[in-house]
Design a binder for these strands. Structure first.
Length: 310
DNA sequence: ATCCAGGACAGTG
DNA sequence: CACTGTCATGGA
């Protein structure tokens, strides 16, 4: 593929006539969030666990499993529509973390001062269940990188190597493992600005393309076994593996330790002392329990928000 | 200019 | 196992 001609400009520009029609009322589906199941669409989609959602006229637009998906929350009602395929309600609930385990997680986490404050500030934030392949590549790219640039890299990857979604000009699906396995290093590094991570993405794509069932097999393993297997992939260390396990495989005991979480944890629970990440993870397992990952999401998002307000 | 960003990795002690 | 320097890139 020619890098120069592969660059596609312009933002995601879904057909507005459909959208307007939807807002008139005939093509939006409705999902009711039951009472007693705290849910915030905005907190969930802007929490940093996913990178392709953006605000759109009161709601959000994203790409999920090859479909453009519009979402808007009105109290306990969730309005949604998708193109070109249909997303069914149970699939959507699963994606958004509206499941029994997540409800249990939100009830069972300890209410210590720091976590308690984060859970009140971002009430209803949930751990998504995203596509493992997209999550894997996204967090390989995230290493030693900042969020603004991570989003640009991923969007660039999709525009260059993903297929354009029918009926939604400028919206691209996340590229398949085969597409990234065959991508030229120059395209990945220069066009998509992956930097030194381009070999990680390419080599991991080769592995996954070579054995298509790999990620779904890993998802069925126990947390520790799955973690070990993920870390065999190039560019995947403890932190990236935990992100994939938590944000795409429903392993709520995973507790990704990044720079932000490390800071909060050391300040709050280790008297501001430097401790190895392994100590942080084992403390989290003891203190937060089997849903420690939920605590991680709240602590991470909370720490970043506080910092961004300064 | 210098430091840092959702780290991983190879090399030392 | 714990610690260190390095990696490509861009924003602050």
């Amino acid at each position: 593929m020619d890098c120069a001609s592969g660059k596609k400009q312009g933002g995601c520009a879904p057909d507005r006539s459909h959208q307007r029609a939807g807002r008139e009322g005939e093509s939006f589906e409705t999902l009711v969030v039951p009472r007693g199941e705290p849910f915030s669409l905005e907190h969930t989609l802007l929490s940093g666990q996913t990178f392709r959602w953006r605000k759109d006229d009161g709601g959000f637009v994203g790409v999920v499993s090859g479909n453009v998906l519009w979402l808007e929350q009105r109290r306990n009602r969730l309005l949604y529509r998708s193109l070109p395929g249909k997303v069914d309600p149970s699939e959507l609930r699963t994606y958004l973390g509206l499941d029994a385990a997540s409800n249990q997680a939100l009830r069972s986490l300890p209410g210590d001062p720091v976590l308690g404050a984060a859970m009140r500030n971002f009430a209803g934030m949930r751990v998504l269940r995203q596509d493992p392949w997209e999550t894997l590549v996204s967090f390989i790219i995230s290493s030693n990188n900042n969020i603004v640039r991570i989003k640009r890299c991923i969007e660039s990857l999709c525009r260059t190597f993903g297929h354009e979604i029918r009926g939604a000009l400028g919206c691209y699906a996340f590229p398949s493992p085969a597409a990234l396995a065959e991508a030229s290093p120059d395209c990945l590094q220069q066009l998509c600005n992956l930097g030194y991570r381009h070999t990680y993405v390419r080599e991991t794509a080769r592995e996954v393309a070579r054995s298509p069932g790999l990620l779904s097999d890993i998802a069925r393993l126990s947390y520790l076994h799955a973690r070990t297997e993920l870390m065999r992939l190039p560019g995947v260390g403890p932190k990236v593996a935990d992100c994939v396990l938590l944000y795409s495989m429903g392993k709520y005991e995973a507790f990704p330790v990044d720079t932000w979480v490390r800071k909060v944890m050391q300040r709050t629970y280790f008297k501001d002392q430097r401790v190895p990440d392994s100590a942080i993870r084992s403390f989290a397992a003891d203190h937060f329990g089997p849903f420690a990952g939920y605590a991680q999401l709240y602590l991470f998002h909370s720490a970043r928000e506080v910092w961004n307000r300064r």
